[in-house]
Lab assay of single mutants.
Amino acid sequence: MIFPGATVRVTNVDDTYYRFEGLVQRVSDGKAAVLFENGNWDKLVTFRLSELEAVK
């Protein structure tokens, strides 16, 4: 189960963010908004829950 605050990895091989890890900001309607941070940039991207896996 994916909840806000969880760290997730993108599993969709066709996505630009494949294998990126980010922090879930919100979850609704089968989608999750994931925040990616890297140095001087932040990006908030929405994914279907089926495209994400929780990082242990």
Rank of each mutant, 00 (worst) to 15 (best):
M1F: 11
M1C: 14
M1N: 11
M1E: 12
M1V: 09
M1Q: 11
M1L: 12
M1A: 12
I2R: 02
I2H: 02
I2S: 02
I2D: 01
I2G: 01
I2E: 01
I2Y: 04
I2K: 02
F3M: 10
F3C: 11
F3W: 09
P4W: 05
P4K: 08
P4C: 08
P4T: 07
P4G: 04
P4I: 10
P4L: 07
G5M: 04
G5E: 02
G5F: 04
G5V: 02
G5L: 04
G5C: 07
A6F: 07
A6T: 11
A6M: 15
A6S: 10
A6L: 09
A6Q: 12
T7P: 05
T7R: 15
T7K: 14
T7Q: 08
T7W: 15
V8F: 01
V8W: 01
V8N: 01
V8C: 03
V8S: 00
V8Y: 01
V8P: 00
V8T: 01
R9Q: 06
R9A: 04
R9M: 08
R9D: 01
R9E: 02
R9F: 05
R9W: 09
R9V: 09
V10Y: 01
V10W: 02
T11Y: 03
T11A: 06
T11H: 04
T11D: 03
T11P: 02
T11R: 07
T11W: 05
T11C: 09
T11L: 08
T11M: 09
T11E: 03
N12M: 05
N12S: 08
N12P: 04
N12A: 09
N12W: 04
N12E: 04
N12G: 05
N12Q: 06
V13I: 11
V13P: 15
V13W: 06
V13Q: 11
V13A: 11
V13G: 07
D14P: 03
D14H: 13
D14Q: 12
D14N: 14
D14A: 12
D14S: 12
D14E: 11
D14C: 13
D15F: 04
D15A: 12
D15Q: 08
D15P: 03
D15I: 06
D15H: 15
D15C: 14
T16M: 14
T16K: 14
T16Y: 13
T16E: 14
T16H: 11
T16W: 10
T16A: 14
T16D: 10
Y17R: 05
Y17H: 08
Y17K: 03
Y17P: 01
Y17G: 02
Y18D: 01
Y18P: 00
Y18M: 02
Y18E: 01
Y18Q: 01
Y18W: 06
Y18I: 01
Y18N: 03
R19S: 11
R19P: 05
R19N: 14
R19W: 08
F20R: 14
F20A: 09
F20K: 12
F20M: 14
F20H: 11
F20I: 07
F20Q: 12
F20G: 04
E21P: 04
E21V: 15
E21I: 15
E21W: 08
E21F: 10
E21H: 09
G22N: 00
G22L: 03
G22C: 03
G22Q: 01
G22R: 01
G22V: 03
L23E: 07
L23S: 07
L23Q: 09
L23F: 08
L23W: 07
L23I: 15
L23N: 05
L23P: 02
V24M: 01
V24S: 00
V24H: 00
V24D: 00
V24R: 00
V24Y: 01
V24E: 00
V24P: 00
V24N: 00
V24I: 04
V24G: 00
Q25K: 11
Q25E: 07
Q25I: 15
Q25Y: 10
R26I: 11
R26P: 01
R26E: 13
R26Y: 15
R26K: 11
R26H: 14
V27C: 06
V27M: 07
V27N: 02
V27I: 11
V27Y: 03
V27P: 00
V27A: 03
V27K: 02
V27E: 02
S28Q: 11
S28I: 10
D29T: 05
D29G: 10
D29H: 09
D29R: 09
D29E: 10
G30K: 05
G30N: 07
K31A: 08
K31T: 12
K31P: 00
K31H: 13
K31L: 13
K31D: 06
K31V: 12
A32G: 03
A32T: 01
A32C: 07
A32S: 02
A32D: 00
A32N: 01
A32E: 01
A32K: 00
A33K: 07
A33V: 15
A33R: 07
A33S: 12
A33D: 15
A33Q: 14
V34G: 00
V34W: 02
V34T: 01
L35V: 06
L35Y: 11
L35D: 02
L35S: 06
L35N: 04
F36T: 00
F36W: 02
F36V: 04
F36C: 03
F36Q: 00
F36N: 00
F36D: 00
E37W: 13
E37G: 12
E37I: 14
E37V: 15
E37S: 15
E37R: 15
E37T: 15
N38Q: 11
N38E: 10
N38V: 13
N38L: 14
N38C: 15
N38D: 10
N38F: 15
N38Y: 14
N38W: 13
N38S: 11
N38R: 12
G39A: 10
G39S: 09
G39P: 07
G39M: 10
G39I: 08
G39V: 09
G39T: 09
G39W: 08
G39D: 10
N40I: 10
N40A: 12
N40L: 11
N40Q: 11
W41K: 10
W41Q: 11
W41F: 11
W41N: 10
W41M: 11
W41H: 10
D42M: 15
D42G: 14
K43R: 12
K43V: 14
K43D: 09
K43A: 13
K43F: 12
K43G: 08
K43N: 09
L44R: 04
L44H: 05
L44K: 04
L44M: 08
L44S: 06
L44D: 03
V45N: 03
V45S: 03
V45A: 05
V45I: 10
V45Q: 05
V45G: 04
V45M: 07
V45T: 04
T46N: 08
T46Q: 09
T46E: 14
T46K: 05
T46A: 05
T46R: 05
F47H: 02
F47D: 01
R48L: 14
R48N: 14
R48C: 13
R48D: 14
R48M: 13
R48F: 14
L49H: 03
L49W: 05
L49P: 03
L49M: 07
L49I: 10
L49S: 03
L49E: 05
L49C: 07
S50D: 14
S50A: 09
S50N: 10
S50Y: 09
E51D: 15
E51V: 05
E51I: 04
E51K: 02
E51N: 05
E51P: 00
E51C: 06
L52I: 08
L52P: 00
L52F: 02
L52G: 00
L52H: 00
L52M: 02
L52K: 00
L52T: 00
L52Y: 01
E53T: 08
E53D: 05
E53V: 10
E53N: 04
E53H: 05
E53I: 09
A54H: 09
A54T: 10
A54E: 10
A54S: 08
V55I: 11
V55K: 04
V55C: 06
V55M: 06
V55P: 03
V55A: 05
V55D: 02
V55G: 03
K56E: 13
K56Q: 13
K56R: 11
K56P: 14
K56C: 12
